[in-house]
Nucleic acid binder design. Structure first.
Length: 284
DNA sequence: CCTGCCGCCTGCGCGC
DNA sequence: TGCGCGCAGGCGGCAG
């Protein structure tokens, strides 16, 4: 479940479901799921066995669980990753990649990932931010997020606006769905050049980003199918509130003009052609 | 440096 | 029915 609202939904589930519990043992079922752990699956499992999970944190789309060892279990869900709390007697699904059993023998944690773009690793420095996440910008829901620095970072880039929004070193947590939703809410075209974008437009976009992320978190995220679920396997319902993403040919909920779909970086972008007109000098 | 393109995976729905 | 193709919420690495 890839973007910030979906990851936050999972984080909240982990906070309730695994914080304070002690890991008994870890079973890596697919080595690709720990490919970011340099020393391999055996080392990964050894560093986790016997450790207590002290918290559940998130920056953008990355999650981490600080451990009583001073390390942290760092995770990214990629395109299809799930962290599920399930009864140990429940049969393994075909995409089970990693299993965590706990000393209390209650619900186990399973990392399930169809496409294996996600993964977990043990990293040093868990209490603040793991070193491996240092290059990821703060996300807009972080109390320490600096709005002025964001404006400066956007205008420093020489690219199109949506590329900047998706760049996790500029601002983290935004993916293809919420980029389109925020641009629609701010009435900005995805190809607006960043370096000449008026400060007020950047700030309006940032407000729209925060609003759509807040609304989506409240709805438990966006789930188009069973791949995107919380730790209990339940879907979010924000898909019913989408105004742009996936709405090709549907009337814009502001002006009634049909939403269009366009190619963008080998994927899709959705916008209202009237509310979000093509800029004079687009950057693609 | 910075920007943008590609590869990494599996499965689904569609048209032929 | 079967098959190939396009498509999907991601990122890091690397070329230019």
């Amino acid at each position: 479940m890839p973007e910030l609202p979906e990851v936050e939904t999972v984080r909240r589930g982990l906070e309730r479901g695994v914080v304070g519990r002690r890991i008994a043992d870890v079973e890596v079922r697919h080595p690709r799921a720990v490919r970011r752990h340099e020393l391999g699956a055996d080392d990964f499992a050894a560093l986790l066995a016997g450790r207590r999970i002290d918290a559940a944190r998130r920056r953008g789309k990355f999650l981490w669980l600080p451990l009583d060892s001073g390390d942290a279990l760092v995770g990214h869900l990629g395109m299809s990753g799930q962290l599920l709390l399930v009864d140990p007697s429940h049969a393994d699904g075909p995409h089970l990649r990693i299993r965590f059993r706990f000393e209390d023998q209650a619900l186990e944690l399973r990392f399930v990932d169809q496409r294996t773009f996600g993964g977990l690793a043990v990293a040093a420095g868990g209490a603040l931010v793991p070193a491996s996440l240092a290059h990821i910008a703060l996300d807009p829901m972080d109390p320490a997020f600096d709005d002025d620095a964001f404006v400066a970072a956007v205008r420093r880039r020489r690219t199109g606006l949506k590329r900047a929004l998706l760049d996790q070193t500029v601002v983290s947590g935004i993916g293809n769905i919420y980029a389109d939703e925020a641009l629609w809410r701010a009435r900005l075209h995805w190809a607006r050049p960043t370096e000449t974008l008026p400060r007020q437009d950047v700030l309006r976009l940032l407000t729209a980003v925060r609003e759509v992320l807040t609304d989506a978190i409240a709805a438990g995220g966006t789930s188009f199918d069973a791949l995107y679920v919380n730790v209990n396997g339940q879907s979010g319902w924000f898909d019913r509130s989408l105004d742009a993403y996936g709405q090709e040919n549907e009337p814009c909920s502001r002006c009634g003009t049909p939403i269009v779909r366009e190619r963008f970086t080998n994927r899709s972008s959705f916008r209202c052609p009237r509310c979000q007109p093509v800029p004079r000098r687009p950057r693609y």
